[in-house]
Amino acid sequence: MSLLEVTNLSVAYGGIQAVKSINLKIEQGELVSLIGANGAGKTTTLKTLAGMLQPVEGKVLYSGLDINSVPNHSLVARGLALVPEGRGIFARLTVTENLQMGAYYRNDKADIATDLEKMFTIFPRLKERFKQLAGTLSGGEQQMVAIARALMGRPKLLLLDEPSMGLAPIIVQKIFDVIQQVSEQGVTILLVEQNAKLALQISDRGYVMESGRITLTDDAQALLHNDKVRQAYLGE
């Protein structure tokens, strides 16, 4: 059984169909990229998988459970976490308070404290700023907060929406190093990313989305060498 299985999923905003009968699967432990141009429907797909939008048709199975009617806060408790585009941090809370919010449903205080220190090990810059208001951090630091907050929930499936957006190249590399590290620790990841080359370089498989449809899927290395993908998304 796949950890995530999406069948004939369609999502609409008003009269506009943003996602058109897509199918995708993610196995436990995989790192899978979803690439495509702006407006292709990638963010809409992630929001639907996270329970923030309701599909007009189709089915989403997470660990065998049909989650179309499950409240999104319940999905977090079941191990499905979204790091949204734009980060969505709590600007008036400190770095530490933001991370603690990621574990809001957990009752294991000792393990939460251990995980908090683990996040500070993964992101040393956050440890330096643990008392600082998150809204005063740089864009890269805020992205670190958003990822660390999601990891505090001990997710089985992590949905990442454009983690490199607006960041300096050196910070982008740091973020992607962490994504790869998290994947190697067993967390399943679905990554939506404009930097298609960097995303595919660390992924197992990839899906290409165009105008709301999945038009191509393959091993990530094969997509990196696919002429159509290279011309459309890799700038070659």
Rank of each mutant, 00 (worst) to 15 (best):
L9F: 06
L9Y: 08
V11C: 11
Y13F: 15
G14C: 08
G14E: 12
K20C: 04
S21Q: 14
S21V: 10
I22C: 07
L24Q: 08
E27L: 00
Q28W: 08
G29R: 07
G39E: 13
A40K: 06
K42T: 05
T43N: 10
T43E: 09
T44Q: 13
K47Y: 14
Q54A: 13
P55Y: 02
V56T: 15
E57C: 09
L61A: 09
L61T: 11
Y62Q: 02
S63T: 11
G64K: 06
V70D: 00
P71E: 01
S74E: 12
L75F: 02
R78T: 03
G79A: 10
L80Q: 00
V83K: 08
P84T: 02
A91H: 13
L93I: 01
V95G: 04
L99Y: 08
G102Y: 04
Y104E: 03
I112E: 12
A113R: 14
K118D: 12
F123V: 01
R125A: 00
L126M: 03
K127R: 14
E128K: 05
G135L: 01
G135Y: 02
S138Q: 09
Q143W: 06
V145E: 05
V145R: 05
A146C: 07
R154N: 13
P155A: 01
K156E: 03
L157M: 02
D161Q: 11
D161A: 10
E162I: 04
E162C: 05
E162P: 07
L167Q: 00
K174W: 08
I175Q: 00
F176P: 09
D177Y: 08
D177W: 05
V182Q: 10
V182H: 10
L190V: 00
L191F: 00
L191M: 01
V192F: 06
V192K: 04
V192A: 04
V192N: 05
Q194T: 05
Q201L: 07
I202A: 02
R205H: 11
V208W: 02
E210M: 09
T215I: 14
Q221K: 14
A232T: 15
A232N: 15
L234S: 05
L234N: 07
L234T: 06
G235W: 15
E236D: 12
